[in-house]
């Protein structure tokens, strides 16, 4: 296994009025290519902030973040956008689909950032929807689908551009147990069969059991690292 992403001396602090709030400090972590990591911890422990840093949508106050040897902390906004488009798929708790677009158009969005032609984009969208079992719902709009189906569309959107890493923020937080298990099984499959590196923030111990490694974050520090 080789390190895909590593944080050295990572710190995130906010200034609120006269007070400086430290989310975490001197944080070190390494994530291997092909890992399925669950990050758990109480509210306010910095889980989502860490996920944002790993996804290049927020910047660390100090420390370095590397992805396959590239320093994210040294990239400008444009470079980070291009890096995200090429390497990261996001899966959100509330799916974050575009209500005005049907499933296929939602899935196609990341491909608009590539140089692929319309035909190839269509083919890839069909494949991604087939992987998540929603090929027949391509023309349906988010409002016409259940929460579980919407999250599967979101997963299709996350994998359609074939990124190396998927970042999931409470991906089953809005779903019932049965649907949550289906989604988590799907993520597990993507990790095992397609080699996607998955980092998932969750409150749910049942969800964490699908990961290969669980990191517990509390008051800005990893207090425990256990193999699932």
């Amino acid at each position: 296994m080789t390190a895909l992403i590593s944080i050295q001396g990572g710190a995130k602090r906010f200034v609120k009025g006269r007070e400086t709030i430290t989310i975490f400090d001197h944080l070190d972590m390494t994530i291997e290519q092909g890992d399925f990591i669950a990050i758990m911890g109480p509210s306010g422990s910095g889980k989502t902030t860490l996920l944002n840093l790993l996804g290049g949508i927020d910047r660390a106050t100090a420390g370095s973040i590397s992805f396959a040897g590239q320093r994210l902390d040294q990239m400008n906004e444009g470079q980070l956008s291009a890096w995200r488009a090429a390497n990261v798929g996001f899966i959100f708790q509330f799916y974050n689909l575009m209500p005005a677009l049907n499933a296929a158009r939602n899935v196609e969005l990341p491909l608009l950032l590539t140089s692929l032609g319309a035909g190839e984009r269509k083919r890839r969208v069909e494949t991604a929807l087939k992987i998540v079992g929603l090929a027949e719902r391509a023309k349906h709009f988010p409002r016409e689908m259940s929460g579980g189906q919407q999250q599967r569309v979101a997963i299709a959107r996350a994998i359609v551009a074939d990124p190396r890493m998927l970042l999931c923020d409470e991906p089953t937080g809005d779903l019932d147990r049965k649907t949550a298990d289906e989604i988590l099984s799907m993520l597990q499959l993507l990790n095992k069969e397609m080699g996607k590196t998955i980092i998932m923030v969750t409150h749910d111990p049942e969800a964490a059991r699908y990961a290969s490694r669980v990191l517990h974050l509390d008051k800005g520090r990893f207090v425990e690292q256990v193999a699932a």
Partner: peptide, 14 residues
């Protein structure tokens, strides 16, 4: 704003 933020997450520019 949420849609815009989502698109930016996916790699869309400003």
């Amino acid at each position: 704003s949420r849609e815009i933020a989502t698109l930016r997450c996916l790699g869309f520019g400003g």
